[in-house]
Lab assay of single mutants.
Amino acid sequence: EPLWIRPDAPSRCTWQLGRPASESPHHHTAPAKSPKILPDILKKIGDTPMVRINKIGKKFGLKCELLAKCEFFNAGGSVKDRISLRMIEDAERDGTLKPGDTIIEPTSGNTGIGLALAAAVRGYRCIIVMPEKMSSEKVDVLRALGAEIVRTPTNARFDSPESHVGVAWRLKNEIPNSHILDQYRNASNPLAHYDTTADEILQQCDGKLDMLVASVGTGGTITGIARKLKEKCPGCRIIGVDPEGSILAEPEELNQTEQTTYEVEGIGYDFIPTVLDRTVVDKWFKSNDEEAFTFARMLIAQEGLLCGGSAGSTVAVAVKAAQELQEGQRCVVILPDSVRNYMTKFLSDRWMLQKGFLKEEDLTEKKPWWWHLRVQELGLSAPLTVLPTITCGHTIEILREKGFDQAPVVDEAGVILGMVTLGNMLSSLLAGKVQPSDQVGKVIYKQFKQIRLTDTLGRLSHILEMDHFALVVHEQIQYHSTGKSSQRQMVFGVVTAIDLLNFVAAQERDQK
């Protein structure tokens, strides 16, 4: 057995438009009618409502009807409940999964919650491996369901041993009777949507819809739904939504950006999952974080739909894509998950301010006199920076000697690579993860907040409520011999709460 199987392995699926269902090699399930009293909570997966979006479509000038398939009504709160249950049931049916076995899954959280929910009911041990950027709410729900959680670096490539995929496979090879159901490759993922989600949409719309818009992560949702719609409703256009920084969209030119990270969760990847059939997507749109969270908040405030950030991405694209539809036509959007997962993220004004998705003037509360002053007023001194090749031991000596707790790590040209902190280095040394002679590049981390000289002290204040420091950066445009230009970030300084307090105190003292 291989040590790991690539999540982007070539698909062996034989589905073709027009091929009889009787030739399918898979076990198919028909939607079942729910009894009045459910035998367990797993029976509350599927049969989610279709809700008309009344205000947002009109606000953006849509002539067509805009409908939302509300997947956050599933038992675990997301569309991923469907595939989690289906993968477990299919693994039980073919004898792969037996009582007492362990389920391991690399996930952005929602599939993990679905699997942990099913594992709690069915009696399996469950280990979820997820990147650090995923919300604390997801972690809390997983723990409450009895799952064990392993976190991995957000910026690790999918084929790196440190990625959530790599760590999951390492655990599988170490733990007896453990299984990775593997949402990236498992046919049960798109089949769950082909058999149930798509049929529900067709039934709820009486077979009449002209466009379907869905955000894409593993691709199982859009693949399964689109294949069924292509068979039953061939005139329906399928629109895929991919965040900026991901590479799922086609044509490839759409993916060209210097951005590699994004805040919206559960969609987009740096590889093409095996289950994603991009041939059934008629057109791709890219979405960005700001519009995703703005539209998610709009869905909550104006439509009462308590959905997550990827739902915002989907609707932001839908109001663009559906401009081509006329009166009497219908566009369906998939709202994948609930706001429950993001209470401390985009639902929080403070978080939105820190990330730059909300401006101070958007909030009406009274601010102190210094709130709208610029960061450049602080008069920061030149920063202490270190090269990635310097040793951890030497870096600790320098920081202690100069009285700093942290320093930016830059390359020879001064471009920011990340940050090192005294606390992080000492804990890594004590844990045996690094040696004093190791290069400081081994303990770089990139989960820090950046701020510009033109940003306000109010925004800085919000950042420092949650973080010990902020890195002050400025952009530099560099022209190359080819005539092309590129933008790079340079370090201007490091600012802490002490710097802000000293500035405010000094100004008030001078005024007296």
Score class of each variant (00 low, 15 high):
residue 383 P to A: 07
residue 500 L to D: 00
residue 392 C to F: 15
residue 450 Q to T: 10
residue 489 Q to V: 14
residue 276 L to F: 07
residue 379 G to T: 10
residue 434 V to Q: 08
residue 455 D to Q: 08
residue 376 Q to H: 11
residue 420 V to S: 13
residue 483 G to I: 07
residue 316 A to N: 11
residue 384 L to C: 09
residue 290 E to N: 12
residue 456 T to C: 11
residue 247 I to Y: 08
residue 463 I to Q: 14
residue 252 E to S: 11
residue 276 L to Q: 02
residue 272 I to M: 12
residue 335 L to D: 01
residue 355 K to M: 12
residue 438 D to L: 13
residue 471 L to C: 09
residue 333 V to N: 01
residue 349 D to V: 09
residue 296 A to P: 01
residue 288 N to F: 09
residue 487 Q to G: 15
residue 461 S to D: 04
residue 348 S to V: 15
residue 509 R to F: 14
residue 389 T to W: 06
residue 493 G to P: 12
residue 250 E to W: 05
residue 268 G to C: 00
residue 284 W to G: 00
residue 490 M to H: 14
residue 250 E to V: 14
residue 415 V to F: 15
residue 360 E to H: 03
residue 284 W to R: 00
residue 488 R to G: 15
residue 330 R to F: 07
residue 416 I to Q: 05
residue 479 Y to A: 14
residue 255 N to W: 06
residue 330 R to N: 07
residue 257 T to R: 13
residue 493 G to T: 14
residue 464 L to D: 07
residue 494 V to K: 04
residue 492 F to G: 15
residue 318 A to T: 13
residue 387 L to V: 08
residue 387 L to N: 10
residue 241 V to T: 10
residue 384 L to R: 07
residue 429 L to S: 11
residue 330 R to W: 01
residue 490 M to K: 11
residue 262 Y to P: 05
residue 371 W to I: 09
residue 269 Y to R: 02
residue 492 F to A: 12
residue 505 A to M: 08
residue 412 E to S: 12
residue 257 T to M: 15
residue 263 E to M: 09
residue 342 Y to K: 01
residue 424 N to M: 13
residue 484 K to H: 09
residue 289 D to Y: 00
residue 469 F to G: 14
residue 253 E to Q: 15
residue 442 K to C: 15
residue 503 F to A: 10
residue 434 V to Y: 10
residue 445 Y to P: 08
residue 292 A to N: 01
residue 357 F to R: 01
residue 310 S to R: 04
residue 505 A to K: 06
residue 328 G to C: 10
residue 374 R to E: 12
residue 268 G to V: 00
residue 502 N to K: 15
residue 430 L to E: 14
residue 482 T to R: 14
residue 319 V to M: 15
residue 343 M to H: 05
residue 264 V to R: 00
residue 442 K to D: 14
residue 446 K to Y: 12
residue 444 I to S: 15
residue 440 V to H: 05
residue 390 I to S: 10
residue 251 P to C: 07
residue 352 M to N: 02
residue 271 F to Q: 00
residue 247 I to F: 07
residue 427 S to V: 07
residue 463 I to P: 11
residue 263 E to D: 15
residue 340 R to D: 03
residue 492 F to P: 11
